[in-house]
Design a binder for these strands. Structure first.
Length: 571
DNA sequence: GCCGTTTTCGGCCCGACTGTTTTCAGTCG
């Protein structure tokens, strides 16, 4: 059973408890447990097999939750959940997805109107029954009916690449408004999460009207959902929602900190403040009535005795403790990257030649690249067999001979076949400078077979790295079921690197897995998988994912100068 | 349900906005 599946059950139970009016702190405990489990690098099912592992050693998990988690793993279902599901109809839980409907209102609709499905809810709204309920009115009824339409579209998060473009465009346009002194993207987008559910932008202005009018009439905006003195919420034409918050200069740092989140990080920050006799809100850090910090994020953290925590690390995964001890890692940056070890050319499904790719990479300041076209299994992409590959490598040698001022490795993106053999023979792979082994097919195989395949690649003496290890497509194809501990263990032993594929649809390894790989001491390569000269653009997303994982330049193999990277190859 | 140098009870982060109220509950982030 996967951690995400366990977490889902605890989240669902929390919803059910909330609707039935349980103690909110108890509900929070279930939600926090769900998050903790979801954030673990190793599977709980595996951890429980180890005799010296105690679930209660995890933050926020006590005796009761530990037992419930163990029971869930053992039985495949959380017993308390099954019980509660008998009490609350599934349709009632679905109503929580409608914006503006929380547990209290949902309970009222269910208990007082007998609404148990979204269809019932629609009918009740159309028959004007909802507005009759205490605490509801015409507007709430209308917003529920509109919300129902959205729910069909809901649950859709957008890729970071799309989110950033929209948020940064709007922030740049706000900056042009007279009286707006600053405009910054905040929220999950600033934390560089791989997907964003909504956007947050923060602006400095004494008077919020100019900025809010600009946003209300912005070409990307479809409608204004709410507008107050300091806060405005709009829906973009793309369907994404965006919050704008306008604050005075002296509060900007505090507001940026608050608005960047994550929610869990902020809860931990405020808890720490309380322990220090301080109070943190979006206006500043206060001791009693006195504001002691607020203009910059740096001083907010400083006031709490913390080093500045980069946005990418703000997930309450230990960053506060590290910041308190001055032990935060110096995160890798795009400027640190000196090589790119995954790209394609016209030989398979790329659109540019070897020479064009090499020159484009050089223009971007890279010292070395590996050309890694597909192997023959990927017929769709015109994958290379041994003969074509050797001919392709010969062309690479010819381009090398032109001395373009960049090192070009003869590489291959070699498929790991469903039967745990490699798509090309060892004698061919032996001639390569760089072998990136990947899963493309049979991703739904059981974990045992997936592991067998990955281990076959890792133990092959010619394989240098595993590319996009899980094969997932964000918001699309589900990840292969990998037991990361075994795979990382083997990779560490055999000196095989792990890729963070920078394509925003992949970002694979993800942040949690990359952090785990680092703990195993595995060199990580951040590659673009470019299929054209513009394909190098995605590098920043891969680096951001690495930063979320807490990677430093030393953790990333392709930050090394060519001479040093070369040594890694001749291991 | 968790947690503990105010420790086994009684706390648990904080504020804006909306709609329904007429002083506030609910929802959201």
């Amino acid at each position: 059973m996967k951690n995400s599946e366990i977490a889902e059950q605890f989240e669902l139970l929390a919803d059910l408890l909330e609707i039935t009016g349980a103690n909110p702190f108890r509900v929070r405990a279930y939600r926090s447990a769900a998050r903790t489990i979801d954030g673990l690098a190793s599977s709980v099912a595996d951890l429980l097999k180890s005799p010296d592992f105690e679930l209660t050693s995890l933050e926020g998990i006590g005796k009761d939750l530990a037992e419930k988690i163990a029971a869930t793993v053992e039985l495949g279902v959380l017993p308390a959940l099954a019980e509660m599901q008998g009490e609350v109809p599934a349709g009632v839980v679905k109503m929580l997805k409608i914006p503006g409907l929380g547990p209290k209102k949902v309970a009222a609709l269910w208990k007082e109107l007998g609404v148990t499905t979204l269809e019932d809810l629609k009918a009740a709204g159309e028959n004007d029954q909802i507005s009759q309920l205490k605490g509801f009115g015409k507007k709430t009824q209308q917003s529920i009916l509109e919300g129902l339409l959205q729910v069909e579209e809901a649950g859709k998060r957008v890729l970071i690449s799309i989110a950033r473009h929209a948020a940064e465009t709007i922030a740049a346009d706000l900056l042009l408004v007279t009286g707006v002194l600053a405009a910054e993207v905040a929220g999950s987008c600033r934390r560089r999460k791989e997907t964003c559910g909504d956007l947050d932008v923060l602006a400095i202005a004494e008077d919020s009207n100019g900025a809010m009018d600009c946003l209300a009439t912005h070409p990307l905006v479809a409608s204004v959902l709410a507008r107050g003195e300091t806060k405005q919420r709009v829906r973009l034409k793309s369907g994404l929602e965006l919050d704008l918050r306008v604050v005075p200069k002296e509060s900007f740092g505090a507001a940026l900190q608050y608005f960047t989140g994550s929610k869990e990080h902020n809860v931990a920050v405020r808890k720490r403040a309380v322990e220090l006799g301080l109070k943190v809100n979006e206006y500043g850090v206060f001791r009693g009535e006195d504001r002691v910090a607020g203009a910059t994020e740096e001083e907010v953290y400083q006031a709490l005795g913390l080093a500045y925590i980069p946005p990418e690390m703000r997930e309450n995964r230990g960053e506060l403790e590290a910041a308190a001890k001055g032990m935060l890692p110096k995160l890798v940056t795009v400027a640190d990257i000196r090589g790119d070890l995954h790209m394609h050319t016209t030989a398979t499904d790329g659109v540019n030649s070897i020479e064009e790719m090499a020159l484009a990479a050089k223009r971007r300041g890279l010292e070395y690249i590996a050309i890694t076209d597909h192997s023959k299994r990927v017929t769709m992409a015109n994958g290379l067999d041994a003969d074509r590959l050797r001919a392709h490598w010969k062309k690479i040698e010819e381009v090398r001979a032109q001395n373009l001022g960049i090192q070009i490795l003869k590489g291959i993106e070699c498929d790991i076949l469903e039967d745990a053999t490699l798509d090309l023979d060892d004698e061919v792979l032996a001639e390569a400078d760089w072998v990136l082994a990947v899963l493309h097919y049979g991703l739904k195989q059981p974990r045992e077979q997936i592991q067998k395949r990955l281990l076959a690649a890792i133990t092959n003496p010619h394989v240098d790295a595993i590319g996009h290890p899980s094969g997932r497509i964000v918001g699309g194809r589900i990840a292969a079921d990998i037991g990361y501990d075994e795979i990382f263990q083997a990779a560490a032993e055999h000196g095989v690197m792990m890729e963070i594929n920078a394509n925003p649809s992949r970002l694979d390894l993800d942040d949690i897995q990359a952090a785990a790989a680092k703990r195993y001491g595995i060199p990580i390569v951040i590659n673009t998988d470019a299929h054209s000269i513009n394909g190098f653009d995605v590098l920043e997303y891969g680096v951001d994912q690495g930063r979320r994982a807490g990677l430093t330049a030393a953790d990333v193999a392709n930050t090394k100068p060519w001479a040093e990277f070369q040594k890694l190859l001749s291991r």
